[in-house]
Amino acid sequence: MRSFLNLKNLIFLLAPFSIFSCVNLKTVQGFSNTSSTGLQQFEEIHYTFLDHCQDRCFEIAVHEFQLERELECECGDFISADSVTQVIYSTINGYLLGLGELAQNNLTTYRTNDLNVALTAQQLGPVSIDESVVGAFSALSNTLLRSTTDFYRRRKIASYIEQANDPLQVLLKKFEQIVQANLKGELQFKKERLYGNFIELKLNNTLESDFEKRKAGEDYYNALLEINRLEKMIDIYAKSLHEIADGHQVLYDKRDKLSLKDLAVDLMDYSSEIQVLYTEFNKLNQ
């Protein structure tokens, strides 16, 4: 019995587990992390429904020359809109971060140093274990541990992707709708109000000197450019939401083959596209 359990036999017994554990979840981790980074760019847009309400309140007060000690703005509906947006955003982000963390390789890399030190202690009573045997045992036990936990992880990840895909597609679609149709829609109103204010200035002939006219023209186009910049950022952001949704759909379609190379190839397109959009977005944000 003792000879059967020597090191060679142990290696032979554990080899299949070891090969199995080589299968990594980098593709899932990479996609989740890239998606989460892309999603978090929402925080860089720096324009909320509440911002819009306060800007509007300020613009109306200036246009109508209303002078108050404190400018009071009715923004309840806009605050609610921000809350809904935040709930959806945080939910999607929480899921992507969790998935990325679960797929991390070091999650199942365990440190057995403490155990090794304890096993090799000279004062282990009547039992004496050689240091090299302890090292080999530790390496093999870690492999076994890792292979079983990796198998468990892969099964869990596939099941989470399956459960999450449909609701995630709904949430990403609605989030895209909020950002691209509603938040960007508010900017359209901002643009229209700006145009109206300046066209009134022009047609009322209230600007007399060339200098005043040019200054007003400059102010108008600067404000317009700033709105256009925000609109572009929102468009790019919405595209990345689309890529995240499509990428997750691929994960779902191939959830039973998460370790295959072709999944990595399939997802690479989505991850690269999200990264390109990320760079484009950051350029506008500089």
């Binding site: 429904f49 509906d77 609610s80 809904v84 899921y95 459960q163 999450a164 609701p167 509603n182 508010e186």
Partner: peptide, 24 residues
């Protein structure tokens, strides 16, 4: 109304939010 449209989305995604939160 555009702000209201955003709040109305909450009713439309309640079930999806619950599911994703459970998965997370």
């Amino acid at each position: 109304i555009l702000a209201l449209a955003t709040s109305l989305i909450m009713n439309e995604v309640a079930e999806s939010l619950d599911t994703i939160n459970q998965v997370t």
